[in-house]
Amino acid sequence: MRRLLKISKKGVAVLFAITCLYSCTSPEERIKKNEVAVSTKAHTVVIQQMKFAPAELIVNEGDTVTWINRDIVDHNVTEEANKEWSSSNLRQGKTWSMVVKKAATYFCTIHPVMKGKLIVKQ
């Protein structure tokens, strides 16, 4: 009986220590440890005057980016290195959205001088 009491006292102490450690961890650290769900954000890149604005966008993995074409001419959004993803050609006023899985540089295949970059926060 005394032994059982000793074990349960130890158990309570360990449980207390874990609870304390968990509550003392900052939310940022818990996000890093994947202990809590990260709310994703939505971003917009405007295609205007033959440029992607902003040309460089910093996002979290899982965020959604929407491109909107405000130019007279058609554009598209295509991953540059291996063409891993691409929108169809977007006419004036049309949009295209994508969930960001990893960092990428992208361009418009119709106007290859137009380039943009997605930077994923570590």
Binding site: M50, K51, D71, P112, V113
Partner: peptide, 16 residues
């Protein structure tokens, strides 16, 4: 004025 950036992008593309 809106057409000028397109013309400049065409020029850059042609030079490429």
């Amino acid at each position: 004025q809106n057409v000028v950036p397109a013309l400049k992008a065409h020029l850059e593309h042609a030079e490429m």
